[in-house]
């Protein structure tokens, strides 16, 4: 699925990364705990979160995350926005809650970047 299709599906706003809407993604990870993201998320996945501080972008950068989806109507702080622009990491903001985001994406073929802990 492209970021453009995700934007439509989630009735979302692309706050950073308008130039990357053709980027294709196949997997995702959901968490508000960045240490869990670091432990389990894989590169090229979507990071779905309700956290809005700059550490979300730092974490996404470390892992080569394809895009950050901020749910529950959350918007990045000015520092977060600036850092995402600097590191060129897309931020997509939507009012859907994380469960809805996940369900909608799953129904369109996006899968968890791992199925269970301890599996590949």
């Amino acid at each position: 699925m492209t970021l453009r299709e995700i934007k439509e599906l989630l009735d979302a706003e692309v706050l950073v990364g308008q130039n990357q809407l053709d980027k294709d993604v196949k997997s995702a990870f959901v968490a508000d705990l960045m240490s869990d993201v670091l432990a389990f998320a894989t590169s090229g996945s979507l990071l779905i979160t309700g956290l809005t501080n700059p550490q979300v972008v730092r974490t996404a950068d470390v892992l080569d995350i394809a895009a950050i989806i901020m749910g529950r109507g959350k918007k990045p702080s000015p520092e977060t926005f600036q850092l995402a622009e600097e590191l060129n990491i897309p931020i997509i903001a939507t009012k859907y809650i994380l469960f809805e985001i996940s369900g909608r994406l799953y129904s369109k073929g996006i899968r968890g970047c791992i199925e269970k802990v301890g599996s590949k």
Partner: peptide
Amino acid sequence: EMGFGAGMGLCN
């Protein structure tokens, strides 16, 4: 608040 402190740092 930063999304850390889950007790995973050293394990990671």
